[in-house]
């Protein structure tokens, strides 16, 4: 991964933004701005709306009020974000490499090649294995490899370190740091400590439970 700016200057700005599910407001009156090269960590107990916030930013769930925008992004370029949720979207009957190649084609093969991405996440030896045989942690690594095969400035990560071992935690830190170096934005919901080499690039947003 080269350390240079590859994305245009981007800012994700949310103003007076509320999100929730099923008619229930979970996160209320949020205002934040994340600029390129910075990471926003979402923290808070279970059920405070971290995942919902990420789904809303991904455009899957409609915001309840307020709005958000990725400023500086050209709408003609297609989607600008990668969403990496709880479910890994892996087809058990396809090989590890086939799984990744599908997304490289669908999302645009603008990043590193699928084989290189598998090497990066530590699945290089398993590329021909049926993905159904992967362990939970390995499946997670395959899901993370998807972020690398297509360049997109905004990463929305929901518990990226779930099921990963210590080395996996280091891998997530490395991936996020590499993405920030290139001017990308990361918004991650996590319960684990993610310690990035540049603490000044990290903002934290703590969500609280509504009483």
């Amino acid at each position: 991964m080269t350390e240079r700016q590859v994305y245009p200057e981007l800012t994700l700005r949310a103003t007076a933004f509320s999100c929730g599910r099923g008619g229930m407001v979970l996160a209320d009156a949020l205002s934040f701005a994340v600029t390129g090269g910075n990471c926003l960590l979402l923290r808070g107990p279970n059920g405070t709306g971290k995942s919902t916030l990420l789904l809303t930013l991904a455009g899957i769930v409609a915001p309840m009020s307020g709005h958000f925008a990725l400023e500086g992004a050209d709408a003609d370029d297609g989607p600008h974000l990668h969403y990496c949720g709880h479910r890994n979207a892996i087809k058990a009957r396809l090989s590890v490499l086939e799984n990744l190649q599908l997304w490289a084609t669908l999302n645009g093969a603008t990043g590193i090649t699928p084989s290189e991405a598998l090497e990066t996440v530590g699945l290089g030896d398993l590329s021909m294995l049926d993905a159904g045989y992967l362990s939970a942690g390995q499946s997670r690594r395959l899901a993370l490899a998807r972020l690398l095969v297509s360049e997109r400035p905004l990463w929305l990560l929901d518990e990226p370190t779930a099921a990963l071992d210590t080395e996996g935690h280091a891998l997530v830190t490395r991936l996020i740091d590499g993405h920030l170096q290139r001017g990308g934005l990361v918004i991650a919901a996590t319960h684990d400590d993610i310690t990035l080499p540049h603490p000044n690039r990290v903002q934290t947003l703590t969500l609280v439970r509504k009483s």
Partner: peptide, 14 residues
Amino acid sequence: HEDGTLILLRQSEL
């Protein structure tokens, strides 16, 4: 839908 593929398909170029 079950394995989360549908959500990701919505972020694809197509």
